[in-house]
């Protein structure tokens, strides 16, 4: 599982660029490039704009930080430039601004200015010591609670599988951070729409996180973290192919996967030679430093409730055909009155 595995199914940085050349239509039809023939083993039935999955081979990561630096450079123009002083917020005791603008260089956790960072740990497994470096960022869930529960549609899943927060719509309530199983989005106050509404009473800035370099994907390029990685840790490609690749990779190293089933499935799959339970126990966790625990599908119960609601009108119509509630009341009657003349007619 060294060089060859990176391109057999799905696309490494080099393979992706080669596929662009083979396809010959990279920039003209960017989404097609990801499913271009040659490198991507052309799985039948995979739509050109199908959801894209990244696979991270942790056995290859050396923790050099090139991906972190590349992420910052590629997304610098999206970083917040807050207006100061921040508007007063009520109640002041509970609504506090969050300001990272003076700490933009922090790279050991997620912040509005650092959408990717590396957790490095040393663990013992199988009688050997392993140093494992884990690039951490948004997992881009298949059914993302941050997008599903955002009351304003500011967080949205795109048809290519990434979840994007619209910084012109986001009010910075941080609900997305609360409902995210990894609490990934980070808030910067003093920026965004809330400043133009009722900054004292609602909103508190804008939430920021990895958007998988959507502007680069739109141009037919891979995300910057993938392009700049000297070890080709990550590959990106259509979901079906990437899942097959992750399984193959895990099998080849007798390793473990994380992200395939977490929260009902994500579009990020880590493959590690070390069990994730060991990694989770070893990594530093806290605000902006996500865990590696198993995660049940947090939207599962919501989906059941939604299904019930979507079926409810059918039950109502059936009840109507059974004559339930059909009786009409005459003047002066209430719901418990005896059946009226009108009621007889109504039946």
């Amino acid at each position: 599982m060294k060089k060859s595995g990176a391109t057999q199914s799905g696309l490494s940085r080099r393979g992706f660029l080669k596929a662009l050349a083979v396809g010959g239509a990279g920039l003209a039809a960017p989404s097609l490039a990801l499913a271009a023939p040659g490198e991507a083993s052309a799985t039948p039935g995979v739509a050109a704009d199908a959801e894209l999955v990244t696979v991270l081979d942790l056995s290859r990561c050396i923790g050099c930080g090139a991906c972190v630096e590349a992420c910052r450079e590629a997304n610098e123009e999206k970083f917040p430039e807050p207006t100061k002083p921040f508007p007063a917020m009520s109640p002041a005791r509970r609504a506090k601004p969050e300001d990272w603008s003076g700490r933009r260089d922090i790279d050991d956790r997620l912040t509005p200015y650092n959408w990717l960072y590396i957790q490095s740990v040393r663990v013992r497994h199988g009688g050997a010591d392993h140093t494992v470096h884990i690039p951490r960022r948004c997992m881009h869930c298949v059914n993302p609670p941050c997008a599903n529960l955002c009351p304003f549609g500011a967080a949205n899943k795109q048809t290519n599988g990434l979840t994007l927060i619209n910084d012109s719509l986001c009010l910075g309530g941080a609900k997305c951070r609360t409902v995210c199983p990894w609490h990934v989005p980070q808030r910067q106050s003093g920026v965004g729409l809330y400043l133009h509404l009722m900054p004292r009473f609602a909103g508190n800035g804008v939430m920021y996180k990895c958007d998988r370099c959507h502007q680069r994907l739109d141009r037919g390029e891979v995300p910057a973290c993938i392009e700049q990685c000297p070890e080709e840790v990550q590959t990106i490609g259509p979901r079906r192919e990437m899942i097959a690749k992750a399984r193959e990779l895990a099998e080849s190293m007798n390793g473990f996967m994380y992200g395939l089933d977490e929260n009902g499935g994500t579009n990020t799959i880590y493959v590690s030679p070390v069990p994730f339970e060991l990694l989770d126990a070893a990594i530093e966790q806290g605000r902006g430093r996500p865990h590696l625990k198993g995660v049940a599908d947090v939207m599962a119960e919501e989906n059941s409730a939604a299904t019930a609601a979507l079926l409810a009108p059918v039950a109502g119509i059936a009840a109507g055909f059974l004559g339930i509630g059909a009786r009409l009341l005459g003047p002066g009657e209430d719901g418990h009155a005896t059946q009226s003349k009108e009621g007889d007619d109504a039946r």
């Binding site: 009108p313 109502g316 009840a319 055909f321 109504a346």
Partner: peptide
């Protein structure tokens, strides 16, 4: 779900008789 049930019930009764 409760509202949709009520709406379905009322709409059916409306179309059938009300």
């Amino acid at each position: 779900a409760l509202l949709l049930f009520t709406a379905g019930l009322a709409a059916t009764n409306w179309l059938r008789a009300w």
